[in-house]
């Protein structure tokens, strides 16, 4: 196998690992925003989830309890968001920002109080984490040309939560476009009056949507600290929530295009990691800083309207009932 192909496969493999939390947060954002609630707090929920997962895993020794703790904490923040802007009709952007600031500060404060390591958790033992899963026959098939390396190198060998993230996409698409729940979620973001006059509670629907978003963000958080990483580090979400939000807009609030956007961001991230220090034609050695900044620059460029007009749900950001 050529070296280039090998590098490419390694990059694809890394892409999936980088994209997994983006995908989970992206699906979370889709549900919340489709219901009409802006979810800038993806970042904070994921960060709080990451901390809860690592802390619980350290204390109990079980990754599963870590996962549940992450989901629980993230859902609590979702409910806080809902209480502020669904029940009390507050500003959704401000509430989301507050959650991000809260999560950023609280994780460090509680972390110092619990572990006295400057906000980080102790490193996790192997059995406290979600370990890579080798698919059946991965080693045997590795020698099959092309397909073998793809199967064993890219598809096999990720931890459980990567597969959860990938499964979340078709599941979200099905839920959103093929079920009564999805019909109502989509309707409430477009025209809450229509939902209300049909005798369905706008509040209950929006709460369901933000809780679902909380669950997904919690899983994303757990992925960062106890599956991909081996412990919690302060600010470890590092803007991934915002990038996921960008992917949602880029994907026009649809699961599969959002997945693609997440993979693109993931790929760029993975590629820059590989390209650092590599001699490239024309520009010479790839400047590290530029490569690191590339995903973020791309986010701005894409959002500035490169990919056509993204029409958000019509009633996004509007509390219900209006006026009053």
């Amino acid at each position: 196998m050529s070296d280039f192909l090998f590098q490419l496969l390694l990059t694809f493999d890394a892409t999936l690992r980088v994209a997994a939390p983006l995908i989970l947060c992206g699906m979370a954002g889709i549900f919340s925003e489709r219901s009409g609630v802006i979810d800038i707090g993806l970042e904070g929920k994921m960060l709080a989830g990451a901390f809860a997962a690592a802390a619980a895993a350290v204390m109990t020794g079980s990754p599963w309890l870590g996962l549940f703790a992450a989901i629980g904490v993230s859902v609590c923040l979702s409910l806080l968001h809902g209480f502020a802007c669904i029940t009390h009709r507050g500003n959704q952007v401000i509430s989301g920002l507050a959650i991000n600031i809260l999560a950023s500060a609280l994780t460090v404060t509680i972390g110092i109080a619990l572990f006295k390591r400057g906000g980080n958790t102790p490193s996790l033992e192997q059995d406290m984490r979600f370990r890579p899963i080798e698919w059946p026959l991965a080693e045997t098939l590795e020698s099959v040309p092309l397909l073998g390396p793809i199967y064993s190198g890219v598809i096999s060998g990720h931890n459980l939560l990567v597969y959860v993230a990938l499964l979340a996409v078709p599941l979200s698409a099905w839920l959103l476009f093929r079920t009564s729940f999805g019909l109502r979620i989509r309707a409430v973001g477009e025209s809450p009056e229509a939902v209300d006059s049909a005798g369905i509670s706008v509040y209950v629907l929006r709460y369901k949507a933000v809780i679902l978003a909380g669950i997904l963000c919690g899983i994303a958080g757990a992925y960062l600290s106890i599956a991909h990483g081996g412990g919690f580090g302060r600010e470890m979400s590092a803007g991934k929530g915002y990038i996921a939000l960008a992917a949602v807009i880029f994907g026009k609030w649809r699961p599969v295009p959002t997945l693609m956007a997440c993979l693109l961001f993931g790929f760029l991230d993975a590629a820059t990691a590989r390209l650092q220090g590599v001699e490239l034609p024309i520009i010479g050695e790839a400047p590290t800083e530029l490569m690191l900044a590339l995903p973020y620059i791309l986010t701005v460029v894409l959002l500035a309207g490169f990919i056509g007009k993204a029409t958000p749900p019509k009633n996004i950001g509007e509390p219900y009932p209006k006026g009053k």
Binding site: R186, S191, E193, D196, K314
Partner: peptide, 8 residues
């Protein structure tokens, strides 16, 4: 004012 979802 119609209570319809335009995109549906």
């Amino acid at each position: 004012h119609f209570m319809l979802v335009d995109l549906f």
